[in-house]
Design a protein around this nucleic acid. Sequence first.
DNA 1: TCGATGCTTCGGTGGCAATCGAACTATGAA
DNA 2: TTCATAGTTCGATTGCCACCGAAGCATCGA
Lengths: 224, 224
Amino acid sequence: MEPNIAYLGALVGDAARSKMLTALMSGKALTATELSLEANITPQTASSHLMKLVDGELIIVRKQGRHKYFQLKNLQVAELIEQMLNISASMAQTSIATGPTDERLKRSRICYDHLAGELGVQLFDALQSNGWIVEAQDMLTLTQLGLSFFSELGFDTAATKKTRRPLCKACLDWSERRSHLAGYLGKWVLTDALARQWAHQDLDSRAIEFTPHGLKAFKSKYGF
Amino acid sequence: MEPNIAYLGALVGDAARSKMLTALMSGKALTATELSLEANITPQTASSHLMKLVDGELIIVRKQGRHKYFQLKNLQVAELIEQMLNISASMAQTSIATGPTDERLKRSRICYDHLAGELGVQLFDALQSNGWIVEAQDMLTLTQLGLSFFSELGFDTAATKKTRRPLCKACLDWSERRSHLAGYLGKWVLTDALARQWAHQDLDSRAIEFTPHGLKAFKSKYGF
DNA sequence: TCGATGCTTCGGTGGCAATCGAACTATGAA
DNA sequence: TTCATAGTTCGATTGCCACCGAAGCATCGA
């Protein structure tokens, strides 16, 4: 029988649940209370929503002490949310007052496990103009030049063979309407920047905050 | 502000509307009455649903005489539906009696504009084992060998430069859980087979019916 | 053992949205 | 002009589901 899309749609199609899912796009595992705050609902209500999301296999739980940590089930789910974000962003926009938080999100944010926003797009452009990646017919490939560039930086090229995940991949950006770098390489770039303490992830949102020095180092490293 | 996923989800998250959208995955434009039959609802109800889908920019209308023809708005929407079909197919399955129609769907069906189902997967495998396409890190590329093979068949390689659409692309199959050929090339293969009258699309479903002779020709053409 | 915190279960309420019957408008055919 | 078909608008009904208050269970720290 044909799969039941309606069930999946209804799962996402509730304001509270969609806020939770979007919050989980940060890649972090969040507790039930945190998610209830995110969605502006009481813990009771949140609990029932979370149960539904788990039943629907969109998220998973890890119980740790008296906390329950929730996260998106897998990359496939994250990609679904991402695509829905893109489509709804391109729909006729009732753009209400954008607060300061939104400004930060627009500048640089995490998109499940890689960098998005203005900075993500700038990075993408720089990689391209330096000839490290090539976009042909919407498919992204790492050039030989790019391969040696990234292995010098400490990127483990051997590890990419083990994963079935695409090495690099263009990911449409809902705020910029431009491509940014996703895939295994995109994940590595973000992880690396965080590890070097050039930036840190906001505790309560998907925003990525670069230090002045970190931003400079980041830009010079990738040549822009 | 962040895009509103919930609205989009709710749009898909109704049984009647999701049936309509799935029906429109055939790529054909359908009338309001046809869609109401597809969803098992009265024309009045269908009318209100269709209005919502148009408002939500998931589908578009063309008025022709006293008919209204509906179709998916663009490729992005079709990809969303496809992705949702995949995810819901991989969810814990309440697999109820699969009728004969479903058997046909499983064998070979249209996935917006390219071939899916068992036959689509077989084609994909054949193209791969003949060395015409290569799947590396989940990215699909047409080899030089494949390029000359397809241009001999009459595939206009120049035209691919004009479109931003990926030339070939792996598309996960919800019934087979395997890749099949999507993208520009995938579309061409299907169009070509239909033009040669090797197969025809069922009038009332997404099934693709190959003639015995057509199937033979199709298989020998692509070497499987 | 006791209180505090995190989460869940239960029951009742309220609101929204899908549905259809009936009546209406538009297009086409005879 | 008249009938048939395609689609819409309106109003009333219905059922589902998100929501919260209250009470309950589980884990942790003292």
